[in-house]
């Protein structure tokens, strides 16, 4: 009897603690959202929207448009994921039987290690190496360009994508590999004929998470894109990402349309990443 009582007391305590933790997280996210909406409100007046949701950023001439940065961010993140996703699938294939078994663990260990490298380190290494390289290869532009930032971001998001795929395959592979081996299928056929097709929603989750990470990164975009507020026209051209825009304009004088554009940028980023995580949840639920 006594032990049941103490069990239910522990349970109740646990429920309260966990409930509080959950409530704090939810309240934090909601209040960030409310804060951003409140400060972006002036933007949604007719005049504010005309200023901020336009295609020209030249504050000294009175143009405060952030649409080039919205497009720049989306193109940059898409480019980075387009490079990282196929590479990540190949890394996983390597670790799940296509490569030599004794290398599978070391490769995954390195990938795991990569997740812990701060983005500023990638940005720092890349800013010293990539722009001169791009100038030498293409002999066009300053080297601070969409391409260099996308390649660096691809390295940043690769481990995220690999680890999501890995966590899914870890449960699947032991069951499917024996069945496939007994049917006489090669490891390559196992991975690309069975694992990849059956884990479609996990691959989608991995892709979308990688996209979100690439979109939200600030330092790599700030240090490598060149930050010219232009629409992307070529992989060797300069662009400005929304995150880098916030970082640079934060320091300008309080009040006024330049400052408002920061809040509008933040709100747009939050909406896009919110939509992304909603998509991930949906795809995971479909799988279950």
């Amino acid at each position: 009897m006594g032990s049941t009582d103490s069990h239910s007391r522990t349970d109740a305590l646990l429920r309260v603690t966990l409930g509080t933790a959950a409530a704090i997280s939810v309240v934090a996210v909601l209040s960030i959202f409310a804060f951003l909406v409140y400060f972006s409100l002036p933007v949604f007046s007719a005049e504010g929207a005309r200023q901020v949701l336009s295609w020209d950023w030249q504050p000294l001439q009175g143009s405060f448009g952030i649409l080039p940065m919205v497009v720049g961010s989306l193109v940059l993140a898409t480019f980075a994921v387009a490079l990282a996703f196929p590479a990540a699938v190949l890394v996983c294939a390597f670790a799940y039987g296509v490569g030599p078994a004794r290398l599978a663990r070391p490769v995954m260990a390195v990938i795991n290690l990569m997740t812990g490298i701060p983005t500023i380190v990638y940005a720092f290494v890349a800013v010293m190496t990539i722009p001169p390289l791009l100038r030498d290869i293409f002999e066009q532009g300053s080297g601070f360009a969409l391409l260099g930032a996308a390649v660096t971001l691809a390295v940043l998001v690769l481990p995220t994508i690999v680890l999501v795929i890995d966590s899914n395959w870890r449960g699947l592979a032991p069951r499917t590999s024996e069945a496939c081996a007994s049917l006489g299928m090669s490891p390559v056929q196992h991975v690309f004929g069975v694992l990849v097709p059956v884990s479609g929603s996990a691959l989608l989750s991995a892709l979308v998470l990688g996209f979100g990470r690439a979109l939200g990164d600030t330092m790599i975009a700030l240090m490598l894109t060149g930050n010219a507020p232009l629409l992307p026209t070529s992989a060797l051209g300069s662009i400005r990402a929304l995150t880098a825009h916030i970082g640079m304009v934060m320091a300008t004088a309080v009040g006024g349309p330049a400052h408002q554009s920061v809040f509008a940028s933040g709100l747009i980023l939050l909406l896009v990443t919110g939509t992304i995580s909603a998509l991930v949840r949906r795809s995971v639920r479909l799988e279950a």
Binding site: L60, F144, G226, N227, A228, P229, L230, S238, M248
Partner: peptide, 9 residues
């Protein structure tokens, strides 16, 4: 200042 100029912080 040309809008094509690279911007550093």
């Amino acid at each position: 200042i040309a809008v094509e100029a690279n911007v550093v912080a």
